Every structure is written in structure tokens, then in C-alpha cells.
Simulated scan of single mutants.
Amino acid sequence: MAASSDAACPADPPAIDLRGLTKRFGRTTAVEDLSLTVGRGEVFGFLGPNGAGKSTTIRILLGLVRASAGSATLFGDDVRDVRRAHRHVAYVPADVSLWPSLTGAEILRLLERTGSAVDHEYRGLLVERFALDLDRAAKTYSTGNRQKVALIAAFATRAPLLILDEPTSGLDPLMDREFRRCVIEARDRGQTVFLSSHLLDEVEALCDRVAILRSGRLVEVARIAELRRLRRTEVEVSFTGQPPDLTRTPGVLETQDLGDSRLRFTLSGAAAPALRTLASSEIQTIEVRVPTLEEIFLEYYGGQDR
């Protein structure tokens, strides 16, 4: 019997799908029961200190090591089938090694033969934007220039997934700005970016969502705005007359009288109740400090294990 024409079509598989992923090295568990989904066209931050399991997870995604348990797919292809899975990926490692006797131009041509289709016009623009001299031999390149070669090669491809592992190590601030611009352009083209970084301001500026890994386990997956709402916001106000009475205002914590008609308090959750209370007083100025991603991140790792 013919299928109904309005039957639901199966959804496209996500860019990355990890289910119960576990990797053990002898008695050491590097990654434990990691389940994570990264959608197509998403810029996803992957955070954690050294030893958290980030690099091991990336090596599994690239087929460089096999998981002890669980599964990992890229656009529906099992990463254990390296040939199929690698069709989807362009990768930039934290420490780039190049063929020392080849020039930058020769290396880009060589990488083109082994990866996804390349947009040559865009690659030429990237060479100019990253100020890379392609005529020099790789052995003369600094760490930053080696990184530029890898970044140009990756961003110039039309690979649906870019896996970037600490990609801006060695770049100066001007080149880091170009990197951020490239990530935004990749996202606008519909590419997925999986970004592992210690530069939390970079992740905060670029990523749609972040995952925080701790001792091989997933601590949190959330949008950055959602992570901020989980943490306290610091508010400082100046006033004339009587200070606002925030003692019974929902969400207000740790009120502190600073003197000179100034008051500081921390706020957890929705701001509306506190704003209504402040509106009933003669407030002159108000300053709000939202916690950075770094502060949120350190809160997860500062102190004892939970």
C-alpha cells in the first residue's frame, strides 16, 4: 500500500549526538556517561579545565580513540566509521603542526585535497584578513602563523561541522577579532561550530549554548543567558530621602548599606519585584552588574565537589 503523502518525514539528525559516552584509560575514567546534542547551525561552547575530558571527547568525535561505552554520531554517521564521519568535519587543534619544508600556499593546497570543498575566493579574503604570508616555509612560522594556516583552511571549507579546540592560542587581539568574525560568518552560512576554549569572554561573545564539563561528567548545558539567571546579579543604587525597603522583596539577597545614600544588594531570579520596590523610592542612579561567564564557570569549580 502506498504511503500517505502527508506522512511525517523523519527529522534531520543533529550535528553532534552523544549518548552515554564513556572513555576509560585503565582505571582512569576520562569521560563518564556523557549525553549531549548539538543542533545544526549552532555555535556551541565546550568548557572545562584541563583534565575535564574535553580533549578526550573531541578525539572520540574525530575517530582518534574509541569510546569504552556509549555512542557518538556526526550528522547521523557513527564516528567509528571514520571515513564517513570525516566528510562532515573541519578541525583546528590547539597546537598546530605543519610540514616544515612546505610553504603556506602549498599546505593550503594539500589540505584542500584531503577535506571538504573549498571556497577559493573566501580563502583568499581570509589570507588577507589574517595577514598571512603564504610564500614562507612553515618552519619559519610563529605559533600564531601556524594557527592562522589551520584556521584559514578550516573556515574556507564548506564542511557542515567545524571542531575548534582552543583555536586562538597564539593569536594577537587583532587576529582574535578576525577569528570571531569568521565564526559568525560560518554560523550565518549554516555551519555548526563546536568550540572548546578557555577564553570565556570569547565563548560568551560567540556561543548560542555552552556545556560545562567537570571531571569527565556533564555539569550543565544551557544558553548563556540561562546560566546567568542561575547566578546572583549585583545591583547598586543611590537615593534621596529614605532608603528603599527591600527586606521582603522576592529575590533580593544580602542587602548592604554603603553609606552616602547608597545601597547594594544581590538579586536572584526575576528583577521585576525589586524594580517595583525601587520605583516607590526616590532613586537617583542604578547600576547593575551581570555575572560574567567566567564567574559562573569558576563557581562550578571553586570549592568542594558536589
Rank of each mutant, 00 (worst) to 15 (best):
F265S: 10
D245E: 09
L151N: 10
A156Y: 00
S169Q: 12
E234W: 05
G259Q: 01
K148F: 03
T240C: 12
R248Q: 15
L161A: 04
F239I: 07
V203Q: 05
C182F: 00
L164E: 13
D172C: 03
V219M: 10
S238I: 04
A225D: 11
V193A: 01
L258K: 01
L174W: 11
D176A: 15
L199M: 12
R262W: 02
R177M: 14
E178F: 02
A186C: 04
F239P: 03
A274I: 06
R276E: 15
L162K: 06
R228T: 02
T233C: 10
L275Y: 10
V193C: 13
S268V: 11
P243G: 10
Q256M: 03
D260G: 06
E166A: 07
A153E: 00
L206T: 09
P160R: 00
S215R: 12
S268Y: 15
A274T: 07
H198Y: 01
V219Y: 02
F265T: 08
G190C: 06
A150M: 00
R262F: 04
A272W: 09
F194S: 07
G170V: 01
T255A: 08
D245V: 07
R276T: 15
I163G: 01
I152R: 02
D245M: 12
R181N: 14
D260E: 14
R217L: 04
P273I: 11
E254C: 11
T157D: 05
R209H: 11
R180V: 11
A274L: 00
V219S: 14
R248I: 08
A225N: 05
R229W: 07
L164P: 06
R158Q: 13
R264S: 12
C207W: 00
Q191N: 09
V203N: 08
V252S: 05
L227Y: 04
A225V: 09
R223L: 04
V183H: 05
A205R: 13
G190F: 03
E220Y: 02
L206N: 08
E236Q: 09
A274H: 01
T277E: 14
L278T: 11
R276A: 15
T240M: 12
L275Q: 10
F265P: 06
D208L: 11
R276C: 09
D188Q: 15
V149L: 08
E226L: 08
L206D: 03
F179P: 07
V252G: 03
D176V: 15
T233F: 01
R209Q: 12
V219L: 13
F194V: 09
T240D: 15
T240S: 13
P250D: 13
R232S: 14
C207D: 04
S238D: 03
R248L: 09
L275K: 13
V235D: 03
P243Y: 07
A225K: 05
R181E: 13
S197M: 05
